[in-house]
Every structure is written in C-alpha cells, then in structure tokens.
C-alpha cells in the first residue's frame, strides 16, 4: 500500500496525523517511566521475599505473590476443563446438525454477554454465590472461582480458534482410518493445536493477573501468608489499590508492587510471542 508517492497535501496531513501518534507515545512513556523509575528503588530481593509489615508500608510482598499464584491456579483449574470442553464442542461437534448449530449460536451469544459483564458485577456474583451461598467467605478459593468465570469467554474464544486452525484433511484422514472422534481429538487435534491452545491459556493468565475489581470482595484484603485455599489473601493488583488509596505513605511500595505486576505481565507477553512464533514456524 506504500507504493503511492505523496502529494504536497499528503505531506501536510502526514504531519498532522503524526502529532496524535507522538502525543500518545509520549503519555505512555511518561506513565511507564514514572512507574519504573519510582518502583525500581523499592524493588529488591528483600521486597520479594519478606512479609508485608505496617499495613504494607514496610516489608515485602511474598505473601501477596503466593496468594496471586494460588488464585490464578484455581481460576485455571476451573476454567480450563470447562473452556476446553466448550471449545472442542464448538469447533468439532456444533456444526454436525441443525440443533447443534442453533445451540451454538446461543452459546456464543451467552459467552459474548459474559465477556461484557463488568468485572465488579462478576465480583458481586462471586460474593453472593461462592462467599455466602457456598459459605466459603472471603477466600482464595472464592476468588479463584470468580476469576475462572471471568476469563472463560476469552479462553474459549482463543482455544476454539486454535482448534479450527488445524487443517481439515487431518480430520478426514483420521475418520477414514476408522478412528473414533474422541481419539481423533485426543491423538491428533489436541497435539496439533497445542501451541495455539497454550497461547490462549497464556493470554487468559495475563487477563486474570490484571484483574482487580472482581477480587475485592471475593479473595479479600488479608496480607498474611495464606495457609490453605480457605484463607483470605490479597493479590498483587488489590495490594496496589489498597496501598495507593487506603494507606497514607504506602506509595513507595505501591510503585514497587505495580512494577512487579507490570514485569510479570511483560514476561507473560514475551512468552506468548515466543509460543506464537513457534507455532507460526511449524505451520510453514
């Protein structure tokens, strides 16, 4: 598309459009520079390995990191079976007959709605169901279950796309060999789609890590080291929020925690890029 020489007017418009792009870049550089420069001074080995003290003003975040991992793992344990099952059905079984297709339309619609539900509302739902109805109270388990509901639409979407990307000849040949659909999926489709599935999984982990509002009233605020999944525990993003809003003088550690959160997301993002590249290389 770049083969067209620019006229005088185009040059002026290019200049004009260049400004917003530069402004946006400038603002984001400002934001990131601020978080990195302020956060780096608080970041140390002690910060990562000590328990928080004095409401988080002093000490480290080790219990916060542990809670975050536990919540993420629970969320994935819940979301992965449901997500994978739904994705397999949508990709491999839904198009087989009229009813399947009609049901699939509604399933997709429902997932689309779920993706649109504000996270605070999912949090309210989690509070009413997991904390109160099931009697889990503020706990890592309740937080993980709520988060599992939240990441489901994204997870299903990317898993289904991954399955659909496997060439159809594989399925036809496998069926011609007399394999059951179950073994086709288990032995051929899942291994073939593995990098794409992994990419979808990593994407969902990133989303889950960034989530705050849904966890405010489900996993709670407690900064102690969790002893079981029934304990309440604070995740990284809630820690940033609480230090910034409710703890005067907590800014320094809030910056450092925000930096840890950003570095974690950056790590996830680069792993994602790697996986996608491996997948793309295998395609060729």
């Amino acid at each position: 598309m770049m083969s067209k020489a620019m006229s005088q007017g185009d040059r002026i418009i290019q200049m004009g459009l260049c400004c917003p792009a530069l402004i946006i870049c400038g603002v984001f550089v400002w934001l990131l520079f601020d978080v990195v420069s302020q956060g780096i001074s608080g970041l140390s080995w002690q910060f990562l390995t000590q328990l928080p003290a004095d409401a988080g003003r002093a000490g480290g975040i080790v219990s916060i990191i542990v809670s975050t991992f536990i919540v993420l793992i629970i969320a994935l344990l819940v979301a992965l079976p449901i997500g994978l099952g739904t994705a397999i059905w949508l990709a491999e079984f839904a198009d087989e007959d009229q009813t399947g297709m009609a049901v699939a339309v509604w399933v997709r619609r429902s997932l689309q709605l779920l993706a649109g539900v504000p996270s605070i509302v999912v949090g309210l739902f989690g509070y009413a169901v997991f904390c109160q109805l099931l009697g889990l109270g503020y706990s890592l388990l309740a937080g993980g279950l709520t988060l599992g509901c939240m990441i489901l639409p994204l997870l299903i979407g990317s898993l289904e796309a991954g399955l659909r990307a496997v060439p159809c000849t594989y399925r036809i040949n496998a069926v011609a060999l007399g394999l059951s659909k179950f073994s086709v999926i288990r032995r051929i489709l899942l291994p073939q789609a593995a990098p794409a599935l992994l990419a979808g999984l990593i994407l969902s982990i990133g989303r889950a890590l960034a989530e705050t509002a849904a966890l405010l009233f489900t996993s709670g605020y407690v900064t102690r080291m969790p002893e079981s999944v029934y304990d309440s525990g604070r995740v990284l993003s809630v820690h940033v929020f609480d230090l910034a809003m409710n703890v005067p003088g907590g800014d320094k550690n809030a910056y450092a925690t925000a930096l840890v959160l950003l570095l974690g997301l950056l790590l996830i993002n680069s792993v994602l890029k790697k996986v996608v590249n491996i997948w793309a290389a295998r395609e060729n």
Binding site: V35, R207, A210, V240, L261, L262
Partner: peptide, 8 residues
Amino acid sequence: GIPSVVYG
C-alpha cells in the same frame, strides 16, 4: 495488557 489498577 496493563492492569487498570496501574492506570488508576
């Protein structure tokens, strides 16, 4: 991917 809490 930046969490909204960091923007806030």
